[in-house]
Amino acid sequence: MTAPLTEGWPTSAAAAAQVTADKYGPPDEASPNTLIWHDRTPWKRVVVSRAIVPHRFPHEHVDVVQHVVEQPVPMERLADLARFNGSVVYDRTRGELSSHCEDEEGNILALNLAHDVVAHGMDPDAARRRCHEAIETRNSENRDPYLDALVFEPGRGPDPDEATIDDELRDRLRHALGGADRPA
């Protein structure tokens, strides 16, 4: 289905595109380097890129597909989130949490553990160990359920922050700069 869109892509990227299309239908947006699916529950967005990225955690692989959920992360948990996994990215303004891995189950696992870290205070090192162990169960009878589905309900959490430019600052700067405002 996606073959014409991924011509010339690395095999891993083209395969990820095909798997995603098999599950979610044709992409909503396509360019020579990127395919995007919007609003495929539970995902806000799924992105497959031609640019593959080597990643050694939890094992050697290439990051090729990104799954995005809306999920707020408390500021005080960001440091532990960063310690957990460098391919889990938080966009504070949009309230989006994403994981970039070799396939969807890798991203489900990473996001479930990220949620444990930020919402339940799981130690990041423990989360990394669980990630290693869970991946090893992929093809076993004792498959870790964290690979199969999100164990939390995504929720909206954009954080627009607060305005810090006020009239007092404008007056002070205008005085310091010695003139009236000029157009930006």
């Binding site: 989130l81 460098g86 966009d91």
Partner: peptide, 21 residues
């Protein structure tokens, strides 16, 4: 560095850090 990621987010929520990339 991973120890600076939270500070960057606290400074400006519209900065995204992808450490692997």
């Amino acid at each position: 560095p991973r120890e600076s990621a939270a500070d960057v987010a606290a400074f400006n929520g519209s900065i995204r850090v992808n450490r692997t990339r």
